[in-house]
Nucleic acid binder design. Sequence first.
DNA 1: ACGCTCGAGTGAAACGTTTCACTTCATTCC
DNA 2: GGAATGAAGTGAAACGTTTCACTCGAGCGT
Lengths: 333, 333
Amino acid sequence: MAPSIKDVAVRAGVSIGTVSNVLNRPDKVAESTRAQVLAAIDELGFVRNSSAAQLRAGTSRSLGLIVLDMANPFFHDVAKGVEDVASSLGYAVVLCNSDEQAGREDRYLQVLEEQRVRGVLITPVEVSSERLDALRRRGTPTVLVDRHDPRIDCCSVAVDDVAGGMLAGEYLVSLGHKRIAFFSGPMGIRQCADRLAGLRQAVTGAGLDPDSVIDVVETPALKARIGYEAARELFDSSGQVTAAFCANDLLALGVLRAAVSTGRRVPDDLAIMGYDDIEFAADAAVPLSSIRQPTVDIGRDAARLLLEECDNPETHEHQQVMFEPELVIREST
Amino acid sequence: MAPSIKDVAVRAGVSIGTVSNVLNRPDKVAESTRAQVLAAIDELGFVRNSSAAQLRAGTSRSLGLIVLDMANPFFHDVAKGVEDVASSLGYAVVLCNSDEQAGREDRYLQVLEEQRVRGVLITPVEVSSERLDALRRRGTPTVLVDRHDPRIDCCSVAVDDVAGGMLAGEYLVSLGHKRIAFFSGPMGIRQCADRLAGLRQAVTGAGLDPDSVIDVVETPALKARIGYEAARELFDSSGQVTAAFCANDLLALGVLRAAVSTGRRVPDDLAIMGYDDIEFAADAAVPLSSIRQPTVDIGRDAARLLLEECDNPETHEHQQVMFEPELVIREST
DNA sequence: ACGCTCGAGTGAAACGTTTCACTTCATTCC
DNA sequence: GGAATGAAGTGAAACGTTTCACTCGAGCGT
């Protein structure tokens, strides 16, 4: 069995309480005693048992973060932001990947609650989850990431997707494009609908008729392969568009591949814009113009909000933070 | 405060022990009693406190997985494999991202040991780590991922990189290439050195002189940007190579971009091969030929090995599993 | 009617910490 | 000189489980 604080106490010739003090408030114990205890810890290879500590303290210094898909660079950056602020405040982050499966999300929520994490950051699979509501009801602070709670009874951090669509739209229109394809994922995804709405607003704002300018291509998933197939199909049919605005960079990468493989020059024959500004966007065969979301900041702010709520559960007021996206111009437009 | 097993016991009118039995060995308690207890649990919103459970049980049903970089699809797949087998055996996985910083790795090892995880899967930042050795000495089973322990005193799972380099080399030679650039990361990375060694073996095996066929381009990092820059430089100088073999797909993506931006046709003017077969490889502007590693299987086997060791610490014998890579041919060659 | 076995449930000890009221002893103050 | 103060350390209770030796009856065969 691993040595306990008691073994350390015996070896150092002090009481258990003193060892605990050395561990938690070193300044409360005299220099020489501390040295002895530290030596004993070292000799025995003692490692504190955090289960016991937590049980007694009643609270853990850790947060849960449940993301939809760790393969997605967006969430990777969010996680980075969360870890940044959490670890700087001495919190550990338990990272969970729901893989967009409600069942996995439920299991992780259960585990996190059993571990008595201080709070949970989550991008839920479904708009509302019974288990998540229960967690909140029982008093665990929760922050929604890249989602908003219509009932506004918890904090959330998201990005203004309408503004992002508008940014892209205004830019493409300013470049003189009169026929724009919008490669969307399933319209059920709020992000897709919002980005299209922004695009339409931009076109309308320029005095054009969105219905004749925009050609919506709805695809079944936001993946490169799908973008490629959808673009090939569009090219084969009529396809007199001069620009493609894609609901995310993966789709855009697929469209780029379709363009290259059919001998179209980018941006001369076809301008391409992505969304998200993932790392690969800058390194694509033709570096992609895109809409950047302040992903790391999203994570940071979400974590800050959560910890703020943990520290002041009484005075805390829920906030809905909304970030503004940013236009990134590269060679594909 | 959250309700405890005791509150449940009172409410259901049974003893604490019975509630515990309902939770852990439901078959040991009579149907009707069980129903009452379950009802009480539901009404109170009871959630078991895993700190207490672990403290008492002395052992947790969780594993630690420390990877170098969650942004790297390789590790993402490994994690998937680990989670697959862990969760099917009722274990939870604590996912940690060392970001190639020894300091972070150390912190995570500390946290995992404090949590008394059953075992640790790790791709260490440095070849040897004091803290990792200590962990092992204290009896926590450990499995190395994508690394080998020269002293063979723990299990490891890796892929034969020499074989992978050879696969690529033989293929390129069979295509008639007589001048091949090898874009390597820092030679200090074993993978890079091994892949080059394999390439040289293949060239030699074909009766050619590796020194005159192979042009080694050592780069400071395995990133797309770096590959782009290195390739531009190579093109500017002499650059009479007809094929580029890259130590990983990111580098290859960069080389592809350089080729496209300088008007070279791929594969006619320059054939490009990557390594890893990440998801983006298939969806690049020109789909990349690559060497595929059975990443998910690596994770699965590593987890299996670890759990095997956890279950039979006495009889367990350390194994060094070595997977064979596979050639994937696409349009870039 | 007797001893047995068996299923169902009980109660208390134990896990390794943290915390807090308390003791000791030396120093300071008037 | 005696009380007051403060620093250093002590010891035991408490946290919420799991586990195990135990009790209590009911049902069984003879």
